[in-house]
């Protein structure tokens, strides 16, 4: 699937537009959509867990200790929803 692009001849496309690698959109980077950038201020963060459930792009990784980590800028579209929900000012849009 990964080698299919807009220059692939018809003989080499999957039939009917089927995709056999479910979830391969994770290889499509949406970070370049961003016009403003969220900055994570870890010293202000209380790990309340309000930001990551609302991120439309899964761009706030959560580790097994249930703690958020820094942004995944490959995917973050810069919508700012996380900054809006943060009660502690731990996310700043720049």
């Amino acid at each position: 699937m990964s080698e299919i692009n807009s220059t692939t001849p018809w003989q080499d496309l999957t039939i009917g537009g089927n995709i056999y690698e479910a979830g391969n959109a994770k290889n499509f980077k949406t970070g370049d959509w961003r016009s403003v950038k969220p900055i994570y201020l870890s010293e202000k963060c209380k790990q309340c867990g309000l930001c990551f459930p609302v991120c439309p792009d899964d761009a706030i990784p959560v580790n097994k200790e249930q703690k958020r980590e820094d942004f995944n800028y490959d995917m973050c579209k810069g919508c700012g929803v996380c900054a809006k929900v943060c009660p502690f000012g731990a996310i700043e849009m720049q």
């Binding site: 959109a25 994770k26 959509w33 439309p56 792009d57 899964d58 959560v62 919508c79």
Partner: peptide
Amino acid sequence: IANRPSRFTSGHRMCAGCG
């Protein structure tokens, strides 16, 4: 969220901030 992997990945083309 920490323990169940996301079954809907990033890299989709929904608008920034869509709910």
